[in-house]
Nucleic acid binder design. Structure first.
Length: 667
RNA sequence: GCACUCAUAGCUCAACUGGAUAGAGCAACUGCCUUCUAAGCAGUAGGUUACAGGUUCGAGUCCUGUUGAGUGCACCA
């Protein structure tokens, strides 16, 4: 099971617009919103219609042009066929703008080709001069808290956490790039029965041992005892079950016996049923096992320790702190390897009592209700959710109560604009309920809470379970990929000129890029089947390809610098006017960077950045293949290409950083 | 039983959120290294977008139903 989380309107005439005095005006021409302004004015001129929908999209690459106006929706406003309309608007724009030098009409699609003058004088210039192209200030003055990773402290981090960590880290980067002040927090689920299990096992078998004496990472050290505890529990449960099956209920309370009888009866019925509902049968079997488990010595000892912990038993608290510290040290090591950092850590042991006051408040307001046994509930059936317990009959809080408290506390203390929870999709329901409760309590920020839900990561053998040992943990995965990268590099004979330290860095970063890109390029919502042997490739659509492209770009850049081409030719790029197709394609795509960043932030999807940068690298590879950047009879061409090369490098660099990948200067 | 999510080439993923002839990579086959990194480029082949209806100028995308897979429905976290 995963670790749970705590888990402008323009008033100028069209003509003026096409000949802007201020260069910054022109840059907006590319923004489809502004292009739509011009088209609106064309329609106004041609047909005298001022209110109609303008739909523009990027032209698909199998057609000529860069922007496409969809004329189908216009047909009902202008009483003509979409083709006719496309033809007329195209002609008008062509005649009235030097930037639109060509157009073609296919069915109701008007494909506009902007002139090389536009791509050179406007786009290229913008990219060249604006070092921060792509950055925006959408989030200026707004503070966002993003909670991610959020593991239990009884076992090492595995693939599920990895996807979580990468999504959280990348999302935080993207939001920062959009001007938000981002606070990264990690909420440790540091209390509960699972921790007590490790503690008990250590007390019994490991008193004299520490991670240092055993020379292993702290989290591995602790999980060793956790598994030990689970095995004891399993054995004891098995013994009890056997007794029960033989009718021996010595020392078992009456109510447990009755429950057992009811369950076995149900199981019997299900097994007799010709339909054989396997899912239900396993469910009942699991219920029986859990029932037996509650009667084991070990389980009782765990429960006992848990209450001692809650009562503040010093000896236990000291041990608890010690165990957790070992785990944290292990985790930190893994974060470091991943190159991921947090701004703060929250601990469930410090938040689990929060939220009770809120429940009282809600009760007073009549938002919640109390049952006869004193437990407190909320009825969300009107929103197609169920009734949900908020406070137990003994007055203690449950998971959601503390999440309510934590949310309110954070927002009040930090004055947050928004909180984002990166938590697996199995908790979709929990967050729906949580957000709904907070809205009902009247917090204005509640409507901006966001659950960044992501699909599960499965192995080809199915779901990972720590208890069953079929887990791919992060450290092992990194090591494995490190070796793959090392072997590939050595086989290709690319180790020359690098010392051992540089090689270690190279292999490590290559391993990380492969892993990170592989997990981030997939839409967060979708499940991933992860095959350690086959899934991670070094060729094609991979992190390695991105690094390779970047390294080549930097190689050329260095060579250009050696030849002093960068500065020498800088002034001459203006003379280069006839663009190669691959050059134009690159400029078109480079210019979309800004838009992609906004989309990624809006949809909470680093995958959009990943797909963007892959496409950019592909276009660059074509460009690189078609022209020889540093050799041409026309020096102006070289000047331009050296600059274009540098711009590609910059945007790829930036994209990789947003994905949490460290770009490599050579490989 | 109820709720939510997913289903696209043999495999892993796209498709700018309703637009054109559904695109990439891997695997297979074929070409390209005496000028910048071949971890690359170009090409061939591969599809009734799970199935059936519906909405409209237009559906992989929206609605309904069917099938299949996953997840959730605890006084656990």
């Amino acid at each position: 099971m995963w670790a749970y989380a705590q888990r402008n309107a323009h008033k100028d005439t069209p003509k003026k617009l096409y000949y802007p005095n201020n260069p910054s005006d022109i840059t907006y021409l590319c923004s489809m919103k502004l292009l739509s302004q011009y088209i609106k004015e064309a329609i106004q001129k041609l047909y005298g219609i001022s209110q109609c929908p303008i739909e523009i999209q990027h032209t698909r690459k199998e057609f000529e042009g860069q922007y496409t106006l969809l004329c189908f929706p216009l047909a009902q406003y202008i009483k003509k066929s979409p083709q006719e309309i496309a033809q007329e608007i195209g002609t008008y724009l062509h005649q009235n703008s030097p930037y639109i030098h060509k157009f073609n009409v296919i069915k109701g699609f008007l494909n506009l080709s902007l002139s090389d003058l536009f791509w050179k004088a406007v786009v290229f210039k913008t990219l060249q001069e604006n070092e921060n192209f792509g950055k925006n200030e959408q989030g200026k003055g707004k503070k966002i808290l993003i909670e991610f990773c959020s593991p239990n402290t009884n076992k090492p981090l595995h693939l599920g956490h990895l996807r979580n960590l990468l999504l959280g880290d990348s999302m935080a980067n993207i939001l920062q790039y959009c001007g938000y002040e981002v606070i990264r927090t990690n909420l440790y689920n540091d209390r509960g029965a699972h921790i007590c299990k490790s503690m008990l096992a250590w007390q019994k078998f490991g008193q004299d041992k520490t991670p240092q004496t055993e020379n292993i990472k702290g989290d591995y050290f602790v999980v060793h005892y956790y598994i030990m505890a689970e095995n004891i529990l399993k054995t004891q449960t098995h013994t009890i079950l056997q007794k029960w099956e033989n009718g021996n209920f010595e020392g078992i309370p009456q109510d447990i016996q009755e429950k057992y009888q009811i369950l076995t009866q149900k199981l019997h019925e299900l097994e007799q049923n010709p339909k054989k509902d396997l899912k239900k049968i396993t469910q009942i079997q699991e219920d029986i096992r859990e029932l037996a488990q509650t009667q084991t010595e070990w389980f009782k000892a765990v429960q006992n320790m848990l209450s001692e912990w809650e009562a503040g038993n010093q000896e236990i608290l000291t041990l608890w702190k010690q165990m957790n510290t070992w785990v944290y040290q292990g985790f930190e090591h893994t974060y470091q390897k991943l190159n991921i950092t947090f701004d703060r850590y929250d601990y469930e042991s410090q938040t689990y009592l929060l939220g009770k006051e809120l429940v009282k408040k809600g009760l007073a307001k009549g938002i919640f209700y109390q049952k006869a046994d004193n437990s407190v509930w909320i009825d969300l059936t009107a929103e197609k959710l169920d009734q949900k317990l908020l406070l137990r009959s003994n007055g203690t809080s449950v998971y959601i109560t503390q999440d309510m408290g934590t949310a309110v506390q954070r927002h009040e203390e930090l004055n947050l604009y928004q909180s984002i929870y990166v938590v697996a999709s199995e908790q979709d329901y929990h967050f729906k309920v949580l957000f709904s409760i907070l809205k009902k309590l009247g917090y204005e920020w509640a409507s901006r809470l966001y659950h960044l839900s992501y699909g599960m990561v499965y192995l080809p053998t199915g779901r990972m379970k720590t208890r069953e040992g079929n887990v791919v943990d992060i450290d092992a995965l990194i090591n494995e990929m490190y070796q793959v990268a090392q072997k590939a590099t050595q086989d290709l004979g690319k180790t020359e000129g690098l010392n051992e330290q540089e090689l270690t860095y190279l292999y490590h970063q290559l391993a990380l890029s492969a892993i990170k890109y592989y997990l981030l390029k997939v839409d967060p919502q979708k499940d991933i089947v992860f095959n350690p042997e086959e899934s991670i490739d070094l060729q094609g659509n991979t992190g390695t390809y991105l690094q390779y492209t970047y390294a080549r770009i930097q190689g050329i850049f260095r060579k250009a610098q050696e030849k002093d081409l960068v500065h020498f030719y800088h002034a001459k790029t203006d003379n280069y006017n006839q663009l190669h197709t691959t050059e134009r394609n690159l400029l078109v795509h480079l210019y979309r960077f800004e838009e992609v960043i906004l989309q990624a932030a809006q949809h909470y999807s680093p995958a959009l950045v990943a797909n963007y940068v892959y496409e950019l690298c592909r276009l660059y590879a074509q460009f690189h293949h078609e022209v020889i950047i540093l050799h041409d009879s026309n020096p102006d061409a070289i000047a331009f290409r050296v600059q274009l090369n540098a711009i590609c490098g910059r945007i790829i660099h930036q994209s990789l950083k947003l994905l949490g990948i460290q770009p490599l200067e050579r490989m």
